[in-house]
């Protein structure tokens, strides 16, 4: 797992957006070989989306051959409700870019058969060959998507009851009235996220410092569902300085030193996008290892 530490939310957002852009360019998607991207909602990715829109407007990034799958959606909330994740994705990303409507997937929280909707969602992901890169954020309790503490780390897309904490936290979007907050949601499972060939998690702010520490310094634990990333071969967490407050100094220094060593000894141009080293400066043979 890589941990990339940046100064603040803006720097984190820029780093992740640039990473997504470079990954897509490297992939060189076409109509028959689309890039499949998993997307979150909430406050964490807003800055990333803003930067992606900028890249698109500058002509540096096209969504023409990108297929997206969102993580979750409330149950029973009309699709056009301002707080629905359909609305969120429309106003923060989709309306600004050239993505094809038929390439966008968000769970339908108003489906007549919710279980079937979830099952079909997994099938749709499989039909396009799985997710190449899943972006995510976390809650202060370390939940990813709506996989609240205690969710199975093997869970798949399903109907989920929201934790009381989440309902209280989300009441601010519903006139501060907890009775208006939907208490059910459809969400991809922890395993759905971890099935992606690459997972990138954004964690910012002091209020998420404990979650970050629990997720990377302690064992894999269903009470901090994002800790499952420890078992992922290509996992990356991008966090800001504030989010590192609960980490050991040793942990922070280690991850910072990785970037530093790369920079000084290898040269950033020699480091692969996913952190692999193509060749060691002065080394006789070109090698590629993680």
């Amino acid at each position: 797992m890589r941990l990339v530490i940046r100064k603040d939310f803006e720097a984190v957002s820029y780093h992740v957006a640039k990473y997504v852009k470079e990954r897509i360019k490297e992939f060189a998607p076409t109509a028959t070989k689309p890039f499949v991207l998993g997307l979150p909602t909430g406050s964490s990715p807003i800055g990333v989306y803003r930067n992606l829109v900028k890249f698109h407007q500058a002509g540096e990034l096209s969504f023409q051959h990108i297929i997206t799958f969102n993580m979750d959606e409330y149950v029973g909330l009309p699709r056009d409700h301002p707080e629905s994740y359909h609305s969120f994705m429309w106003s923060n990303l989709f309306k600004h870019v050239d993505i094809l409507p038929e390439n966008v997937h968000i769970l339908d929280g108003n489906a007549t058969d919710l279980d079937l909707e979830c099952q079909r969602y997994e099938e749709k992901i499989a039909a396009v060959g799985g997710i190449e890169l899943f972006l995510g954020g976390i809650g202060p309790d370390g939940h990813i998507a709506f996989n609240e503490p205690g969710s199975s780390l093997n869970s798949r897309t399903r109907v989920k009851t929201l934790a009381y904490d989440t309902i209280v936290a989300n009441a601010r979007f519903f006139d501060n009235d907890i009775t208006k907050v939907p208490n059910l949601a459809l969400t991809v499972g922890v395993a759905t996220v971890m099935d992606a060939r690459e997972v990138c998690i954004i964690i910012t702010g002091a209020h998420k410092a404990l979650a970050l520490a629990k997720c990377i310094e302690e064992g894999v634990n269903h009470m901090w569902t994002v800790s499952a990333i420890q078992l992922h071969p290509r996992g990356m967490i991008v966090c800001d300085e504030d989010a590192t407050l609960e980490l050991h100094v040793k942990t922070v220094n280690y991850f910072k030193s990785i970037e530093k060593v790369h920079e000084q000894l290898i040269g950033s141009d020699n480091v692969g996008l996913q952190g692999g080293v193509r060749s060691w400066r002065g080394g006789a043979e070109s090698t590629y290892h993680q």
Partner: peptide, 23 residues
């Protein structure tokens, strides 16, 4: 922002995107 028009009326692009699923 943009203005979206269909059949002589202004339409909601958000709805158009999700329901008509085309550009």
């Amino acid at each position: 922002d943009a203005i979206w028009i269909q059949s002589g009326k202004i339409i909601d692009p958000h709805k158009f995107f999700w329901y008509q699923k085309r550009l």
